[in-house]
Design a protein around this nucleic acid. Structure first.
Lengths: 134, 134
DNA sequence: TCATCCAGTTACTTCTTCGTAACCGCGCGC
DNA sequence: GCGCGCGGTTACGAAGAAGTAACTGGATGA
């Protein structure tokens, strides 16, 4: 389906699609898993360590638990962004599929925008907070 | 800061920035508010109706409550994506700032990717579910 | 064959987010 | 001066997401 056509024809579908994606990758860890895998594949525990380096700051924890990593990987596999293979000795090996790699592009668009505007955003936050808004 | 430099220099900062943005706009309603405002400004109740048209499907509700709309608007205002003005008769008027409008571009990148690959994703989901994964 | 690592899973708890519904102040028309 | 719509806020409860920790089952190596 051509995009301009979609964009013009059905704004609610546009919104729904974007929300779908946020639902998919908007959880605490999935985006980080993609970061962790985008250069090269990794096995489970290796990936966990990579992600611990990247560590998100919100909420309680700064390291990913087995449970959350397994869950994020399952979601991404289900959507076809990540593949799991058995390496030598029955060890798991996770990698991005070509679909997963293609997702890197919009992901970087989001990232680039943030990098470009982070100063503005932080300034706006300061101003807003200083204005003593409730 | 030049982006390539950032991208090469500090992967954890890259990840952190993207997560910041997901934290900002990854909640249930914020993206929809931006959709609702991107063509023209609206007042509170008008915006609420526009968003009700777009309605997300996850969770319990299909319409946005006063509380959630107010909260989403506060967050977006705080980050400088949305501005509030008093119209005639003390009525509120919300609009995207230029920062907010610029965010449309990465947002569409995400959307376009989803539109391009939604069939693949759905197919992957079917396959995964049919394979009876736990 | 015993201990250990890897790759998870499970049961349970805690924390955050979301939704509901009631309320409030302000300006306007009557 | 009273009712009404607008633009919210508040208190509360319920649902959902995330964290903890203990456990499992298979392979590996000593």
């Amino acid at each position: 389906m051509p995009l301009d056509q979609l964009r013009n024809a059905d704004p609610s579908r546009v919104a729904a699609l974007a929300r779908d994606l946020l639902d998919r990758v908007g959880d605490r860890w999935s985006a980080l898993v993609i970061y962790g895998l985008h250069e090269r594949p990794a096995r489970f525990s290796e990936l966990r360590e990579r992600i611990d380096e990247l560590g998100p700051r919100r909420l309680r924890r700064t390291e990913i638990s087995n449970k959350m990593l397994a869950e994020a990987l399952r979601g991404l596999r289900r959507d076809g962004l990540v593949a799991r293979a058995e390496g030598v000795g029955g060890h798991a090996e996770y990698s991005l599929t070509s679909l997963g790699r293609s997702f890197w592009i919009p992901m970087m668009a989001v990232h680039d925008w943030t990098a470009d505007h982070i100063a503005e955003i932080e300034e706006a936050r300061r101003a807003f907070d200083d204005a003593g808004m409730p």
